[in-house]
Amino acid sequence: MNIWLELALTLVVMLVVVLTASLVTIYVELKAGSHMQARIGPYYAGGRWGWAQPLADGAKFLQKEDLAPAKADRPVYRLAPFVVMMSALGIFAVIPLGPDLVGAKLDLGVYFLLAISSFSALGVLMAGWSSANKYSLIGGLRAAAQLIAYEIPLILAVVAVVIQAGTMSLIGIVDAQQATLFTLGGIEVALPFILTGQLVSFFIFMIAAVAELSRIPFDMPIAESELTMGYLTEYTGIRFTMFFLGEYATVVGFSAIAATLYLGGYGAPFLPESMANVAGPAILLLKVSALVFVIIWIRFTWPRLREDQLQSMAWRWLIPISLINIAVIAVFKVAF
């Protein structure tokens, strides 16, 4: 096939997948969150269960005037949502939905992921700075501090996986989780990494991911009750929508990364090789949904931490723990 056609096709498919995923996530958050709060949430939009609420919200946002504060640093202000959105989309480029269903087969997939996902920090900082609003500025700075602090445990948690799998390619990591560990009564048993010694790094990864996403309990950069809306304060209309979609796309993205790295990705036990490309996306979707649900669930239960508590948690607990974790895993890797 023509390389350009292939590229365009991949792009379109990816965009559709990502947008649908984030719209669905928004819907689930609205609906599940409402029920957790003894409400019913969206109900009328779209006829049944209010399924069209995210679309209706989106349509409403698009109609809003695209305002920029008078003293805003306009080019930067305009650009910031694109940077965030790009980083969110970039994550999906390398996540394998099946052995062959992947946007770009990179040998250094993990490396690319970590790089592109921290790109959003730049967008957030840009938004915070250029809004010419003190609340936005504080929010942006908080976000920057937070992203720097949590990037490290995140990377360290991933490094543990890379050591165990012995590869940086995401497909390689999934394959490693499907390798037969032992045979039990004639059945070949393969276990995802979370069951084979990566429990600690899984938790560290999820904590760090939630912090990167700046969602409750780590939503200080937005912190509605403190900073009105943090770096989002001044955004309206389509730019706000982009931040919003970007946030949910990143939620899905990070859940997909976690599912791939720790929960076996598109693979499932007893899945015949030939089915992997067909059933893979569904299996991954299942795992991702579970993780996304937990993130939503947490949001509707817990309050937020304080910025300095978050920092001390990262530097005093998560980083040392993940370093020890790496050491232990490395020792095991060498020993066995």
Binding site: M36, Q37, A38, R39, I216, P217, D219, A223, E224, S225, F300, T301, W302, P303, R304
Partner: peptide, 16 residues
């Protein structure tokens, strides 16, 4: 009070 700490669920439960 919890809302100001960032927890929105007690709000709804207590209003209920």
């Amino acid at each position: 009070f919890p809302l100001e700490l960032g927890a929105s669920t007690p709000l709804m439960h207590m209003l209920r």
